[in-house]
Amino acid sequence: MLDLYTPGTSMLHRMSPGPKMAALAIAATALFLQESLLVTALAVVAILALYRVANIPMKTALAQIRPLMWIFVIFFAVQWYFSGLTLAAYVVLRLAALILLASLVTLTTRASDMIDSMTRALRLFKPIGVNPDKVSLAISLALRFIPVLGRIATEVREAQKTRGLERSIIAVAMPLAIRAIKMADDVSDAIESRGYRS
């Protein structure tokens, strides 16, 4: 879900990550602080227009919120029941706007560029003992581990299924944790053997 980058040459692709992140932070905060349905709806339209600018198909935009559809439905139903249609629409639209906006940044920014600019920003914290290179290595690794953990979880669940244990949380979580630590040990060896100086 984090390897979202879609290659392109649009204005948004060429913008450097720093300002893009700053714009995201400001826009997200603004969205959160305003409480008007109209403004929120306009924001969604504006964000979708930005997808056009970035040459990202609407299908990709929809794919960003599809996994959350059922949450949207629940939110909408609950808010409608308790607080009326306007608030329900507002809450769901605001959520959609936030996710679409954050996804637009990830879709148009390579993870490595994002990490590079964060590393540059982190140099400011060097005097208090922050090592930017180590932080950026940790971020890259974390992003790589997420899909791998998902796959290990599936494998473990399948293995335990043959023993009728797939419903036992511990029977799945314990081997998963042990394999994850083993993977981390192997990855440290690989990083060391590829010449990384700590």
């Binding site: 390897d3 992003l143 790589r144 192997d186 990855v187 590829r194």
Partner: peptide, 16 residues
């Protein structure tokens, strides 16, 4: 001395 491990998943450090 370069080193190649059994499981490439543990050797590939970066997402891309």
């Amino acid at each position: 001395v370069g080193f190649v491990f059994q499981n490439p998943d543990n050797q590939i450090v970066f997402p891309v």
